[in-house]
């Protein structure tokens, strides 16, 4: 959905095999609603005009009711409602029953990122690449609370429930970039828990699978990884209430670790913290960061470290002055720990 911001979309794009089904269902129900809604409104307006009181406190003729009318306007809505039910259930069935021949992709939701793993082993975060015209089945679970995968352009969504697997399938019909949302409220950064679904031609998808990244500088590539692909930003760039440390201006400084040791924040430190976050926890933080071992390639690690280093432009010269170019003052106070996540 390449929506420019100056456009005001009024109808969502159709990009899956059942998008049109849902849309036709929508039009059908809308037609029924308009029929009844406009009908009643017009009749009320006509009555209001015609029977406007001529005289205060007149007593018009009393009408008790009409059995024929009552049954008519019970039966007609009932029949129409049943027709909606039948059509809706057919669509529901199409959405609900998983095809046997679908390509399976595993999805793990966690506060507040989506992790995908393809059958071929590729992992993605907050981005999902799928080929066009092939049935895809998402097998989903979550590490913490209930989330919900929602791709409006595909007209489908499903809750992702801890402790069990839920499923969702689709077959994309049009290459493009479509929004992915979390639709079940999941806490602090719920609205940030989303990303993009890239639908590609089979050929492009294959070359994506073989894994050549675009030609960006390491810092740009790292920024992209940080903000989008790996979702680091959901914890490390969230303003006052973020769970992870703010990374602006930290590079090159000494830091106190849990247990009393100190460490120099150099490239090696950053690398270790990404791969083995529990190893060097900064005082005042909870060891909640997941490991990214196996999810980042060496190449990506280099880019990430380059990007984080770029957040501290004055690091090389004077590591001891206050905060760097961060948006706020850097205070790694105790109360940050578990700010949003009491018991976990």
């Amino acid at each position: 959905m390449f929506m420019q911001s100056e456009n005001i979309p009024l109808f969502p794009e159709q990009a899956s095999t059942f998008a049109w089904q849902v849309d036709y269902l929508f039009f059908y129900i809308t037609a029924i609603c308009l029929f009844f809604g406009l009908g009643v409104v017009l009749v009320v307006l006509a009555f209001a005009y015609k029977y406007k009181e001529q005289k205060k406190f007149a007593s018009p003729r009393n009408i008790h009711g009409s059995l024929v009318l009552e049954f008519t306007w019970t039966a007609i809505p009932f029949v129409l409602a049943m027709s909606i039910f039948v059509l809706g259930t057919i669509v529901f069935h199409n959405l609900y029953s998983m095809p046997q021949d679908a390509t399976e992709i595993f999805v793990v939701g966690k506060q507040w990122m989506w992790k995908f793993q393809h059958g071929t082993g590729q992992r993605e975060i907050n981005e999902l690449h799928v080929p066009v015209g092939r049935k895809i089945k998402l097998t989903m679970t979550t590490e913490d609370v209930i989330h919900d995968v929602y791709i409006p352009a595909f007209r489908t969504k499903a809750d992702v429930v801890p402790g069990r697997f839920t499923y969702l399938w689709f077959e994309a019909t049009k290459p493009g970039k479509y929004r992915l949302f979390c639709a079940e409220y999941c806490g602090l950064n719920h609205s940030g828990m989303g990303g993009w679904v890239y639908v590609m031609e089979q050929k492009d998808f294959d070359s994506w699978l073989s894994g050549t990244d675009a030609d960006k500088t390491p810092v740009q590539a790292g920024e992209d990884l940080f903000n989008n692909k790996l979702g680091c930003a959901s914890c490390h760039a969230g303003g006052d209430t973020q769970r992870g440390a703010k990374l602006e201006g930290i590079f090159g400084k000494e830091v106190k670790l849990v247990g009393g040791n100190t460490a120099q924040r150099d490239e090696q430190y950053l690398r270790n913290s990404i791969l083995n976050p529990g190893g060097q926890v900064v005082e005042g933080y909870q060891p909640i960061m997941p490991t990214f071992k196996g999810q980042v390639t060496e190449e990506q690690l280099v880019s990430l470290v380059a990007y984080i280093r770029s957040l501290s432009p004055d690091a090389a010269s004077a590591p001891s002055t206050g905060s760097g170019n961060g948006t706020g003052t850097e205070t790694e106070s105790e109360d940050k720990a578990g700010d949003d996540q009491g018991d976990k």
């Binding site: 929508f26 039910f85 669509v91 529901f92």
Partner: peptide
């Protein structure tokens, strides 16, 4: 009457399972 009509009728969309998948939440 006007507002309840709209509210009630849009309930039809949400009570229709196939439709509600797209619309819920």
């Amino acid at each position: 009457l006007g507002l309840f009509l709209v509210g009630g009728l849009t309930g039809l969309f949400l009570g229709t399972a196939g439709m509600d998948i797209h619309l819920s939440d």
